[in-house]
Design a protein around this nucleic acid. Structure first.
Lengths: 230, 230
DNA sequence: TCTGTGATTATGTATGCACATATTCTGCTA
DNA sequence: TAGCAGAATATGTGCATACATAATCACAGA
């Protein structure tokens, strides 16, 4: 009846929590108790409960015991795919075009986002991402040339700066901000839409081992939706 | 020098991956090899590598071995806080006002989203969420009364429908869609902004054990940003 | 009543071992 | 050469045990 695998026990306990066997915030049985009930080692229960805690379903404290989360976290696992995948998953053909590329003075706002001094050189890039040759997203990007010097002379024809960085500086971390922007005339013409269009906007600042790598803003064409499961 | 804890080993290996010791997609040493190198049990290495795999940094296959992810996943952990927390974390006072509440025919679009027949009764709610008495977000919600019959007569004064559902039907799952909407005149007046404003929009459809619970759309006031770390 | 200290206890983790499971690899056979 | 069966192997998992660690609790002393 009851599985004696950690995943089986995890799902059994998950069902019991959802069924309301313990109220929000209420203390649950301890590992030893569950182990006896399910007829398995405490180690196995430990793993089941640890996983549920990682999922945000329960809280655990040494000596304090295990309890159902008082206010369950809305757990959303959002993975923002790289643009090529966003386009190709819609069945469209992806292409990109670098419309501007220059090493120039970094605007103060970007210097602050990247926390770099005025002397640091950055590469500024504007890229238009196309789905079936229609504008899909417009990208403004600054790359810290101290962190990624080889970007200055990188070929960005086969791969966009987006993909090039993912391959060159993988596993970087950072901050993302999502918002809605009212298109000005320059943005509207880049995205081939009208002035005042509501544009879904994604800002990302990326770090690797404490050093700023890049700051980027994506402006998505009208009708774009970022979908994910929770 | 090197920790013999799973987290110590995990971080050591993470650093080696980031340093580029193995190329993207390249085969890494096996568990037994790492265990010998770090002088610990294979179980410990197993947990370290398992965690790295959950983080999306490596891929593992039985007999196939462990390799660095060929194309690293952009790992974004987004937890959408409930509105009260979004407001209060900005240091503002949260209040809400139910501006409309009616059991009526469910629009076909919503029936499709919830996959419910025409006969199913739903509760329609409009709620205005305020930060320091200024509009922060406007919410349109349909609640499946088959799934949550007690919603029909629930007091929604202390807690908004948002929070009431989180407490009543915790741990539900679903789909989220983020987009940008151009405000029409009714939405603009609800949010006390101007016609044509760019409005950040969040759609969510929620399920519990295969049954549709609620469909909701949040329209956030101008200037709103949804921030998170990756 | 307040305070601090030590005992208590639930979870956290490392280990050695055994066995399960999914792939890949090898070599036999047609 | 193609196809298939079985061997080999890396990861996956369960268990018993021991000890670590962090909270909490109880109690003594001021």
């Amino acid at each position: 009846m009851k599985q004696v695998t950690h995943s089986g026990i995890r799902e059994a306990i998950r069902k019991r929590i959802i069924a309301g066997e313990w109220a929000l915030g209420e203390l649950m049985p301890g590992e030893a108790e569950f182990a006896q009930e399910y007829g398995c080692a405490r180690t196995t229960v430990n793993r089941a409960l640890r996983t549920l805690a990682e999922d945000g379903m329960i809280e655990r404290k040494r000596k304090g015991g295990t309890r159902v989360r008082p206010l369950p976290l809305p757990p959303a696992q959002l993975r923002i795919p790289i643009l090529r995948e966003q386009v190709e998953s819609r069945g469209s053909t992806y292409r990109h075009r670098v419309t501007n590329r220059i090493v120039r003075r970094t605007p103060a706002e970007i210097r602050e986002r990247l926390q770099i001094p005025e002397t640091t050189r950055t590469l500024y890039l504007e890229t238009l991402h196309l789905a079936d040759d229609r504008p899909f997203a417009f990208e403004r990007r600054w790359i810290n040339l101290d962190a990624v010097p080889q970007a200055e002379h990188a070929e960005l024809t086969e791969y966009s700066a987006n993909e090039w960085l993912v391959r060159t500086v993988p596993f970087s971390r950072g901050e993302v901000s999502l918002s809605a922007t009212k298109a000005g005339s320059d943005l509207a013409s880049a995205l081939a839409t009208h002035d005042g269009a509501a544009v879904f906007t994604l800002d990302r600042t990326t770090w690797l081992e404490g050093q700023a790598v890049t700051a980027v803003t994506f402006y998505y064409a009208e009708g774009f939706e970022l979908k994910f499961s929770i």
